[in-house]
Write a protein that binds this DNA or RNA. Structure first.
Lengths: 170, 170
DNA sequence: TTGCTGTCTATGCGTCGTGCATATATATTT
DNA sequence: AAATATATATGCACGACGCATAGACAGCAA
């Protein structure tokens, strides 16, 4: 019973945090939804094809193509022919897209920082350790990892626990 | 710098958890989106008017009216005249709506439980304490509380930290 | 009471994102 | 060389959404 109370609170915190993050991040992106995640993923891995992006975002094929259409029309993303695969498109951020990405990551970081502000240094450290353990156990495969890390800042997150888990799986 | 790594991981976990929760919960609801949250909110507070629901879900007026239309057409929700306010509608779950709500809450609980399974009892307790502290500090006002707790199980969550904070504010 | 303002609900309308089905091009296998 | 699989693009129809608006009622003022 008391166990379930903890589970309930954890679910509420996850919802509250991701609500705040997604809302804040959408304001930095050209449109709500997965546009912000698409942008940060492309900084994460420049040249990513549409199909990989699609799997990370959990959208349909046409939906992803149209999203890229809109991002390209807005001057944030550029389509180039892929060097390795003649069928594929290699997606790159433009300069404007890079600026948008920086704003998105800053907003995300700011929201999480504000949320963690009530914890003292020891508590924050303890929370970080537990969070890392939870996150590492949650990732199922590479596709899921792309999705989970779709809004991450890869520069900050050296030795990412998610990729660490994947190395263990593969 | 290492500080930011913690923030990054916390953001990723929040996203991963809420993704999983929202997806699982949507499968128990008649449609994706905020339908599941609408159903659980109505168990939380039977007789809730559309406007309160709208604020908790973060939708537009017409969007909420249409959502209630679809839920009513599906036999999950019932509109009744409000006893106190002649303009307002009092929303209630039908029997079928109650069953759907039970399935939604069970799915949510199951997902969080599975996520917390890697922690041993002491870790889980510590994580629960820190989570509660974070959640309590995050809630701004009553409207926000409805939103944060929109998928909660009020039976399980006796002495909810969110309502506790609100009592402190008000 | 009468009248004014604010709130709650409902709906017509136009827009736009979405997915299905399909078409085309290229890669990979047989 | 043929067959199959994969990556991208698009025509089409559906549906959710928000804007603007309308109608009903509450609450307050004169």
């Amino acid at each position: 019973m008391t166990e379930q109370r903890t589970e309930n609170i954890v679910g509420a915190l996850a919802l509250a945090l991701s609500d705040a993050l997604l809302h804040g991040v959408s304001l930095q992106a050209p449109e709500p939804g997965q546009a912000a995640a698409a942008i940060t993923l492309l900084r994460h891995e420049p040249g990513m094809p549409i199909e990989t992006l699609r799997r990370a975002l959990g959208l349909s094929h046409p939906g992803t193509v149209r999203l890229v259409d809109r991002l390209a029309a807005g001057g944030l993303v550029e389509r180039r022919p892929s060097a390795r695969d003649g069928r594929a498109v290699a997606l790159y951020l433009t300069e404007s897209g890079e600026r948008s990405c920086t704003a998105i990551l800053a907003t995300r970081l700011e929201h999480v920082t504000r949320a963690l502000a009530v914890l003292n240094p020891e508590e924050r450290r303890a929370f970080g350790v537990l969070t890392e353990k939870l996150l590492a156990s949650l990732v199922r495969n590479e596709e899921h990892a792309y999705s989970v890390c779709r809004l991450c800042d890869t520069v900050v997150c050296a030795d990412c626990p998610v990729t660490g888990t994947l190395r263990g799986i593969v």
